[in-house]
Amino acid sequence: MRRDRLGYLFISPWLIGFAVFTALPFIASVCLSFTHYTVASSPTWVGLANYQTLLFDDPSFWTAIWNTLVYALVAVPLGVAAAFVLALLLNVEVRGIAVYRTIFFLPHIVPVVASSVVFMWVLNPQIGLVNGILRLVGIEGPAWLQDPSWSMTTLIMLSLWGIGGSVVIYLAGLKDVPASLYEAARIDGANVVQRAIHITMPMMTPVIFFNLVMGIIHAFQYFTQAYILTSGGPQESTLFLALYLFFRAWRYLDLGYASALAWIMFVLVASITYGLFKTHKRWVHYE
């Protein structure tokens, strides 16, 4: 009992905040998903009509689901792994490591507009840097962002560019790995790679778990870069759920429909997250 009270006391800031600032808007948006709502007039009840249309009469919605799943399932594991390796590299004590760390974190600091302009140039099929380099080895590169068979791959590769955030989190975690474990491994004759896999990785599972869950949640809300670089095109090859939601909500002005879309999206993310959370006791080691 006393323990209960103490626990609730500690989490009370969030509980209050949730009740005041989050719960109401959440409930409101559930209700809105069963209505036709265009901001100016009061919402009118339409029952399951929005869900029906989405599931059975909206090909763009299914395209968006597919694209988002592909992105989440490829970009997230890729990013989690790449950030881990980069973090190991950046954990080394060499001169100027502070500069390197800053450089890899740059994508989070440079305004998206500025970096997007650069990507447009780098990926320009005829005069861009990437295809220029490929041409040196005799390959004619594609139109990275404008070719529907390449645009998704390109966005996934660009997502790697933003791993600096995860790297910082890993770096914070790496310092918590007990040195005694390394020492024992060294005595057993384990090399650098073996130590990374058998000691660092298991010790880092809480952080890996965090990055994985947040990666999934963010992947489902992936928006800015796709909005600026491709706007969902070409041919809906990069139409993501968040992008479609934005168009429906603020462009075509159909907030009921957008809310229904958001809740389908919510159920998807929630079940993936919940699944990860349920299995995490098996592979995440605390302490």
Binding site: G7, A28, S29, V39, F220, T273, Y274
Partner: peptide
């Protein structure tokens, strides 16, 4: 670090609040 009833479900709820896109709670908020 504290044990209390409904700790796990409440934590899952906390995670879930991040899963709903802000676009649709913007107007009510």
């Amino acid at each position: 670090r504290l044990r209390f009833r409904f700790r796990e479900p409440l934590f899952v709820l906390l995670l879930m609040t991040m899963a709903l896109p802000a676009q649709v709670t913007m107007i009510p908020q």
